[in-house]
Amino acid sequence: MTAYIIRRLLYAIPIALGVSMVCFALVYIAPGDPLQTLLPEDASAETIEMVKKAYGFDKPIPVQYALWLGKVLTGDFGNSIASGRAVSEELFKALANTILLAAGAVAIAFSLAFAMGTVAGYWVGSKVDRFVTGVAVVGVSIPNYWLAIVLVIIFAVELNVLPATGMGPRGSDTFELLTWDHFRHVILPIFTLSMIPIGIITRTTRSCVAETLNQDFVETLRAKGLVESQVLLHVIRNSLPQVLAVMGLQFGYLMGGSILVETIFTWPGTGFLLNKAILTRDIPVLQGTILVLAMIFVATNLVIDLCQTAIDPRLKRS
C-alpha cells in the first residue's frame, strides 16, 4: 500500500511538470504583444520596447520558462503587470473565495443529490424516479450563467431580498460566513454553482444504489431477516465510496469552472481573476492562476484515487 502511494505520488511529478509547461506555453500561443493592453493605446514602439525589457519579456522563451519555474517552485509567481501586486497574494485570496463557493456548492449538491438519488435508485422506474431523473437532467443541461442572471433579476432586482453582486458590505476582507449580512451574498452563487453537481451526483447515486440492490448480497441480507431499512443502509454504505469519488471530482471541476458564475456575481475568486487576466493579458496572473487550479485538480484526483484504493484494494492497478 505504502509503495503504491509513493509510486502514485512520484507519478504526479512528471504530470505536474507537463502541466507547468502547458500553462507557460498557453500564454505564448497568443498573437500580438503581451504588454499591449497594459500600455496607453498610443504608446510608441520605443516605449513598449523599454517596458518589455523591464519586465523580462525580451529574453528567449525557454529562458523565461526556466526562470519562471524556478521562482514558482519557491512559491513566487511574480508580480501582476496590471496591479503590480504579488500574484501569490491575489491568487491565494481569490482561491479561498472560490473554495468557499465550490465547497458550499458541492456540500449542498451532495446532501440534496444523495437523498434524491437514493430514493430514485431504490424505486427505479417509479414516478419519483422519473421526477428525480428529470431534475438531474435539467441540472446538467441548464446553462448556469443564464440561470444566474435569471436568479439575480428575481431575487435581487424584483424581490430585493438578496444582493446582486459582491461578497459583502465591506468586501471579502471582513467576510464572516456566519453573519446574515455576509451569508446572503453567497446564497445565489452557491445555488447556481450547485446545479451541475446536483445533476451528476444524483445520477451516480441512483445508478449505484440500483446496481447494488441487484447484487446477490442484498438477497442474502434479506434472507437473513434484516428489515428493509437496514438493507438500505447496507446498500448506501456500499454506494458511498463511488459517490464520494464523483463528489470530489465535481469539487475539482468547480474550482476551475466557476469563471462564468463568478463573472456575473462579481465574486472575487479565481474565475473572476482569470477573466480579468485574460482581458488584460496579465501574463504572470494568467500563468499562476491556471497552474494552481490545474494542480488543485491533480491533487484532488490523487486524493480520490488513494482513498478509493484504501477502501477497495482490488482497484489497485499498475
Binding site: I149, V152, I153, A156, V157, N160, L162, P163, A164, T165, G166, T263, I264, F265, T266
Partner: peptide, 18 residues
C-alpha cells in the same frame, strides 16, 4: 470605488441598493 465590468450587474447592484 467598486469595479463592476458587467453593465447588467451594475444596474442590478444599483436596483438592489448595493
Amino acid at each position: 470605488l467598486i469595479p463592476m465590468p458587467e453593465a447588467t450587474t451594475r444596474a442590478a447592484a444599483l436596483l438592489s441598493g448595493q
